[in-house]
Structures are given as C-alpha cells and as structure tokens.
C-alpha cells in the first residue's frame, strides 16, 4: 500500500522551495497519505494489459503554423512582476546557483 513519509514530504517541500515547519510537515504528510491511499485503490483494478492513459481524448498532431503573432505590451507584463529593474523581472537570487 502506498504511503508517503514525512521525509518525502520534506524533500518535496524543498524542491518546491516551501519552508515548512515541523508541525506543518506532520500535518501535510498525514493529509497526503490519505489522498495517496485513496488514489492507490485504482491500481487494485488495473492490469498489465491496460496502458496508463495520459490523454483522455484520442487526438494527435495538433499544430500551429510558424507565424509570429503580437506579444504583450511590456508595461502590462512588468506590472505583474513583484519588482522590476532595467525592464526585467527582479527576483530573489537562488543560493548556490550560477
């Protein structure tokens, strides 16, 4: 039976750059565990001859032609940024990365 450990939740929180405290980790670990166990019931009825489905509609090859269309107005774009400098999005530097 699937279950998610507190360490796994802590790892996922790190990947998503979420700062979770000890209590929050316990809280989410138990909640996620319930969700995973509910979803895991599906695996009880699947068989090897049924491929995993990723797309509910049997369509392929949906393309657009290589044509340039209008982009957004920059002032509008930058108005959504938390901070702006030099016409660019100003973001916190991620530590230990180039």
């Amino acid at each position: 039976m699937t279950s998610i450990s507190r360490d796994e939740v802590a790892h996922l929180a790190h990947l998503a750059r979420l700062d979770l405290g000890a209590e929050e980790l316990d809280h989410y670990a138990s909640q996620l565990d319930v969700i995973l166990q509910a979803v895991a019931r599906i695996s009880e009825v699947t068989a090897d001859d049924i491929p995993a489905m990723s797309h509910p509609v049997p369509m392929t090859n949906v393309f657009r032609e290589d044509v340039v269309t209008a982009s957004l107005n920059r002032a509008d774009v930058l108005s959504m940024a938390p901070a702006v400098e030099d016409d660019r999005f100003k973001v916190p530097r991620i530590l230990d990365e180039e």
Binding site: D66, V67, V68, L78, D86, D87
Partner: peptide, 25 residues
C-alpha cells in the same frame, strides 16, 4: 520565426521582455 508553443517572435537581440505573451509567461 515564432516560439515553440506560442506566436511570440524569436528574433535575437530584442529589448527585454518585449517578446512574451500569456503562454510563454
């Protein structure tokens, strides 16, 4: 001429953040 998933131009050297749209943002 255009990006992978949207119609924004791919020209090199354009002013910052002028070739963006809801898809590539």
């Amino acid at each position: 001429k255009s990006k992978m998933w949207c119609g924004c131009s791919t020209d090199f050297g354009a002013d910052a953040n002028t070739q963006v749209c809801p898809v590539c943002l």
